[in-house]
Design a protein around this nucleic acid. Structure first.
Lengths: 167, 167
DNA sequence: GACCTTTTCTTGAAAGTTGAACTAGATAGA
DNA sequence: TCTATCTAGTTCAACTTTCAAGAAAAGGTC
C-alpha cells in the first residue's frame, strides 16, 4: 500500500513498541506450542489440523479447494501440497466436482474424522491452558474485538463490504 | 503438560470459539502481510528481519548465537541456517567468541545496519496500518496485557521466576 | 464457432524449517 | 589427569512453504 514516502516516519511510542514485542513473542510461542502439540498427538502441523477441522464442519464433510484455501487463509498452491500430504496419510481424499470439471472437492475420510475425534480433546485442552484459562472474561471479550478489527483490516480487499465496523 | 485424561474435555464456549477463530485469522493474516512487505522491501522474511533488529540493539551490534536464538524464540538449528543466509547476503558476519572457543558471535555489518535504516520506516508504517492505527488507546493497552499473560504462560519454564503476575 | 480472458488446480524448483545426530570445547568429579 | 557429562553450534535428511509457470475448463464477445 502506501510506503513511508511523505515526511517523517511515525515511529512507535514506547508503549506501542512494548505491546508489539509482546504480540510477536506471544504469537510465536503459541504457534510453536500448538505445532508441537499436534505434531506429537496427531502427526501433523497446526495448519493441517485446521484444514481437517474446516472439512469436518462443512456440509458433507467436503469443500471445494478454492473455498477451503480462502477459509483457511492460505494459497491454493499451499493447499494443493497440503491435501496431497493429507491424502497420503489417508485423512482426506479428492473427488471430482460434478458441476465444474476443473474443480476438486477435498473430502474428509472416516479415518480422518476419527483421528479428529480422538485428538480434539487434547487440542482444546492445549488452547485452554495457553490462553483462555489465563484470561479474565473481560480480556477474552476484548481480545475478540481486537482480533476482529485487525483481521478485517488485513482481509484481501472486497471483503470490506461485509465489515462496516472498520470505521 | 497434562493431557485431557480425566473426565470430559472442557470444550470452548461459543464466544471462546469465535475469539479463537478471530485470533487465528488475524495472526495468520498479519504474519503473511509482514512477510510479504519485508520480502518485497528488504528481501527477507519477517523473522530474519527481527534477527537484524535484535542485533542492531545489542551492545556492539553483536550477540552470541544461543542468546540470539533465545531472544528471538527460535531453535539454534533454525538460527544457524538463518545466519548462514544473512551472511551470504552480507548483512551479518560471524566472529569467533574470544572467551569460549565453541562460541560464535553474530555481528551486524555496516551494510546490514544501513539496510535496516532504509527499510525501518516502511516496516513501522506497515505495522501501524495493520494494527495500531486501527485500535483505540484502550485496546492497545489491553492487548499488551493479554499478550504478556499469554507469552508468560508459554515461556519455556524457569523463566516463570521473573513473572510473579502469572497467578 | 473462434478468440480472448478468467478461473481452478497442479507442478517443480528454490528457500525455509524441523528434529536428530554429530563435533568440539567446557566443566566437574574421582 | 582421566573420565563422564554438559553446552555451543553445525549439519543432514525429511518435510513444508513460496513463487512462477503451466494445463484444462469456463465464461464472455464478436
Amino acid at each position: 500500500m502506501t510506503t513511508a514516502s511523505t515526511g517523517e516516519p511515525r515511529w512507535l511510542s514506547d508503549e506501542e513498541q512494548s505491546v508489539w514485542r509482546a504480540y510477536l513473542h506471544a504469537t510465536t510461542l503459541m504457534e510453536d506450542h500448538l505445532d508441537r502439540q499436534l505434531q506429537r498427538d496427531a502427526g501433523m502441523p497446526h495448519i493441517y489440523y485446521g484444514l481437517l477441522v474446516q472439512l469436518s464442519q462443512a456440509p458433507r464433510r467436503q469443500k471445494r479447494m478454492t473455498e477451503l484455501a480462502k477459509d483457511a487463509k492460505i494459497t491454493r498452491s499451499r493447499l494443493s501440497h497440503a491435501v496431497a500430504r493429507l491424502e497420503k496419510s489417508g485423512w482426506v481424499r479428492r473427488e471430482d466436482c460434478p458441476s465444474d470439471k476443473r474443480g476438486q472437492n477435498a473430502v474428509l475420510t472416516d479415518d480422518g474424522f476419527e483421528m479428529l475425534r480422538r485428538s480434539a480433546p487434547g487440542h482444546v485442552d492445549a488452547v485452554r491452558q495457553a490462553m483462555f484459562d489465563r484470561l479474565t472474561p473481560e480480556q477474552v471479550r476484548s481480545l475478540g474485538e481486537i482480533m476482529q478489527v485487525v483481521a478485517a483490516g488485513l482481509q484481501p480487499e472486497g471483503t470490506d463490504a461485509d465489515l462496516p465496523w472498520l470505521r
